[in-house]
Structure formats: C-alpha cells, structure tokens
Amino acid sequence: MANTPEQNNAVCVEFFDTAWNTGNVRADLLTADAVDHSFVGGKAKSEPGVGSFQHIVGMFRHAMPDIHLTMLDQIYAADKVVHRWSLTGTDTGGVMGMPPSGKQLTFTGTTTVRMADGKIAERWANVDELGLLQQLGVVPPPPGA
C-alpha cells in the first residue's frame, strides 16, 4: 500500500532536516537505487545511491559546519514532494571550492522529490547559486542594490 501524500512529506521533512541539521544522511529513508539529480558549481550529475546525497550534504557541512535548514514551504501530492527552503551558515571551510570568507551566508532553493514505496527515489534541487556567489563577493550585485 502506497504512502499518503502527507506521509511522503513527513519522510522528506525527516530526511532533509536530519541530513542538513545534523549531518546524518539516513539511507533507510532512500530507495536502494535513489538518484540525486544535482547541479552544483555549474556541473550537472545524476548519481544513484546514498553516496551522492552524502557528498552534497558533506560538502556544504564542511564549508559551513553551523549550517541550518529551515523549511519555508511544503507542497505535496501523490508521489511528489516539493520544499522551498533556506540554508544559513558561516563560511569557515570554503563554499564551492573557494577560500573561506568567514561570512554568514543565507541562500534559498527548491527541492522536488519523487517517492516510491514510502522512500525517496529521486531528488532534484534548484539552488540560488547566483545569490550565494554575490554574498561571497565573487559576482557583483546588480546595479542599484
């Protein structure tokens, strides 16, 4: 029997809250062949398994050990869950391969998940990398900002 949309959302909230806020990427909430469709640093990749999820969370948690995820919106229907979120943290380890800035950063994004048998089967994320790069001073802010 398939999970309800509400149950699917609860699984996603548990997975992402635990992963980002504690660093514990719970493989038990992923299908064995879960695919993380990431686009980070201008490179698209799709990798199956828990390792890809661990890599992306680990990369940001290394750069910002005090990183904290806040869910801003939760939308769910059938086997899809969409979260709009905000991440904040202090850049002490160097974000996206850049030298540490020591800056407090805040960036937002949207994650879409496809569920299968009560577990996360696929994840797509859109992150405001431009806003992040502007906060780091790598890209100038828009005129008049």
Rank of each mutant, 00 (worst) to 15 (best):
T70E: 02
A34I: 05
F60P: 00
W124E: 02
D33H: 12
V95Y: 02
Q104H: 08
T88R: 09
T92Y: 07
I75E: 02
P141V: 14
R84L: 05
G49S: 05
M115E: 07
A63D: 01
I56N: 04
P140R: 07
L29Q: 13
A32D: 15
L132D: 01
V113T: 10
D28L: 11
V50F: 10
G109W: 13
W124H: 00
N21S: 06
Q7Y: 08
G89P: 03
M71E: 10
S101D: 10
A32T: 15
E129F: 15
M59V: 10
Q135D: 04
L132W: 08
A125G: 01
M59P: 03
I75Q: 06
K45G: 15
Q54Y: 06
Q54V: 05
G89F: 14
G42P: 05
D66M: 02
V113I: 15
G102E: 05
A34Q: 06
L87K: 05
T31M: 13
S38Q: 15
G109A: 12
G23I: 06
A19L: 03
M98Y: 14
Y76L: 00
G49A: 02
V57Y: 06
A116L: 14
R123P: 00
V35H: 03
K119A: 15
E6N: 11
H55E: 12
Q134G: 03
G41W: 12
V113R: 13
D128Q: 08
A116F: 07
L105A: 02
A32F: 10
I56E: 04
A77K: 06
G51Q: 05
G49N: 04
V11Q: 01
I120W: 11
M96N: 08
K103H: 04
A125D: 08
W20T: 03
V95G: 05
A27M: 10
K45P: 02
G51P: 03
P48M: 04
Q135M: 01
S101W: 12
S52F: 03
V25H: 08
N9G: 11
I75D: 00
A2S: 13
S46T: 11
R61Q: 02
T108D: 13
G49M: 04
G144I: 15
P48E: 03
S101L: 04
M59K: 11
T106H: 09
G41C: 11
A63H: 03
P143I: 13
D91L: 10
V11G: 05
H83W: 09
P65H: 07
R84S: 04
Q7S: 08
A27I: 09
Y76M: 05
G93P: 05
F107T: 10
L136D: 00
A125M: 09
N21T: 11
A32I: 12
V40T: 04
E122V: 12
T31A: 13
P65C: 14
D91N: 11
W85K: 05
